[in-house]
């Protein structure tokens, strides 16, 4: 967790370039065929369960097993490695970049992720708070719940097997919750954002400042 945050610099950066740049890599080896062009707009996955795939970005074919790969985020194709079209690539090769326009909420989240300690998901699974933590959250709200390293904070549920997750990180209060109990979380994605108790007011100041400085939602 950063102690010194230059809000002006951080907000200035978002003001001058309110986009996120997401690189897209080949998911495995195979022959790649692009289905979009540079400058194209692409859509993210949608639907209640994010089950409707986004715009197809490319198809990768390994051993006559073609697999379409779709965009997980909306935006514009800002870079396309056109030279790779139709050629064989290794897994993890950079294919393109999507320029994603940030919403106010995403900017706040982006800044918070820089200043909070983010506790990551150990495996792709569903998560819920440990009973004690849940009851404290229900009574007083997450931002009143203090946690310290070694505390049992979450239960990871995978194939009807429940595993307690012990917190490892800086002590503090649960400021942000990034998961929904019914939805799977990818390995490495943040589950909670933790803030030292004495820095809660600073975090609140950031949010207020962004809300005031950012007059539109887009």
């Amino acid at each position: 967790m950063s102690n010194e945050i230059d809000f002006d610099e951080l907000l200035g950066k978002y003001k001058s370039d309110p986009y996120d740049y997401i690189d897209v890599f080949s998911i495995h080896t195979g022959a790649v065929t692009f289905t979009i062009n540079e400058g194209d707009e692409v859509d993210a996955a949608s639907g209640e369960w994010r089950h409707i795939p986004g715009t197809t970005l490319y198809e990768i074919n390994r051993e006559r097993n073609p697999k379409p790969v779709s965009s997980k985020i909306n935006g514009t194709i800002s870079y396309l490695n056109r030279e790779l079209d139709g050629s064989f690539v290794e897994a993890g090769e950079k294919l393109m970049t999507i320029r994603h326009p940030l919403k106010k909420k995403e900017i706040i989240e982006g800044i918070l992720k820089k200043v909070l300690y983010l506790f990551p998901a150990p495996e792709r699974a569903k998560y819920f708070f440990a009973m004690d933590i849940q009851s404290r959250i229900e009574k007083k709200g997450a931002r009143s719940v203090s946690i310290a390293p070694g505390d049992e904070i979450l239960t990871m549920s995978l194939m009807k097997r429940d595993t307690p997750i012990y917190y490892q990180g800086e002590p503090g209060v649960i400021h942000s919750v990034y998961f929904d109990p019914g939805v799977s979380v990818d390995q490495g994605s943040p589950l909670i954002g933790v803030c030292a108790s004495d820095k809660v007011s600073m975090i609140q100041k950031i949010i207020t400042r962004v809300k005031a400085d950012w007059d539109t939602d887009h």
Binding site: G47, H51, I52, K126, L158, M159, S184
Partner: peptide, 14 residues
């Protein structure tokens, strides 16, 4: 397979 024909895979739930 959901009602709109899309397929998802769930590893947790009942």
């Amino acid at each position: 397979v959901l009602d709109d024909g899309r397929e998802i895979t769930e590893y947790s739930g009942e």
